[in-house]
Computed example of a mutant assay.
Amino acid sequence: MKRLRLPGPVIDAIYVIVGILFCGFALKSFLVPNQFFDGGVTGVSLLISELYHIPIAYVIVAANIPFIIMGLKQVNRTFAFKTVLAIVGLGLCLLYMPEQHVTSDKLLVSIFGGVFMGIGVGLSIRGGCALDGIEVLALYTGKRISFTISEIILGINIVIFLIAAIKLGLPTSFYSIITYYAASKTSHFVIEGLEEYTGVTIISAQSEIIKERLVMELGRGITVYKGERGFLKNSFDVSHPVDIIFTVVTRLEVLRLKDLVHSIDEKAFIFTSTIKEAAGGVLKRRARQH
Rank of each mutant, 00 (worst) to 15 (best):
I60H: 06
C93L: 04
I17M: 00
A279E: 13
Y181W: 14
P66D: 10
L257K: 01
K233I: 02
N157L: 12
F161G: 01
I14Y: 05
G199H: 04
I153F: 03
F25P: 04
P33G: 10
S263W: 06
L137R: 06
V242G: 05
V44S: 13
V238Y: 06
A278D: 03
I160T: 07
I152V: 09
F174H: 04
R77T: 10
F189A: 15
E151V: 07
A80V: 09
R213H: 01
S173V: 02
R229N: 11
V41P: 03
A13V: 10
F30G: 05
I191K: 11
Y197S: 09
R126M: 10
L283S: 04
S235R: 10
S263D: 08
M70G: 14
V44M: 14
R220M: 01
D243P: 01
A63G: 10
I125L: 14
K73M: 12
L232A: 15
T42R: 05
G113M: 13
K167R: 13
I222W: 01
Y181A: 12
F236L: 13
V224L: 06
S235W: 08
G127L: 00
N76C: 08
E50A: 15
Q100F: 15
V136S: 01
K276S: 11
G281F: 02
L255F: 11
P33H: 12
V10R: 06
Y58P: 12
D132G: 08
S150P: 08
K143D: 12
T78E: 13
V190G: 07
T247S: 05
H53T: 11
R256P: 10
V121R: 01
K143C: 10
E195K: 03
C23H: 07
P55T: 07
T198H: 06
S29Q: 06
K82E: 07
I87Q: 04
S29F: 08
M1F: 15
H240V: 12
L46S: 05
V102Y: 08
F189R: 14
V200L: 08
L283R: 04
H290G: 14
G169V: 05
I60L: 08
L90M: 04
A287T: 07
I270N: 03
Q289N: 13
I163P: 05
N64L: 02
K267Q: 13
Q206R: 05
K211A: 08
L72Y: 15
I54M: 09
G281P: 02
Y15W: 11
A182P: 09
V41T: 06
L21E: 11
G39N: 03
G133Q: 02
L131I: 00
Y175L: 10
K143Y: 11
E135F: 09
N64H: 05
K28R: 13
F246L: 07
M1S: 15
F22S: 12
N76G: 10
L94V: 00
T198F: 02
A165G: 09
R229T: 09
R288M: 15
S263G: 08
Y140A: 06
I11Q: 02
A13T: 08
I69M: 11
S207P: 11
P55F: 07
N34C: 07
I264L: 03
L46R: 06
F161Y: 06
I48W: 07
T223G: 05
L139W: 10
V32L: 11
M216S: 12
G133I: 00
L21T: 14
L90S: 01
G127W: 00
S263R: 08
E253M: 02
G230M: 03
E277K: 14
I156P: 07
I134F: 06
R285K: 15
E208P: 05
N234T: 15
T198S: 03
G114D: 01
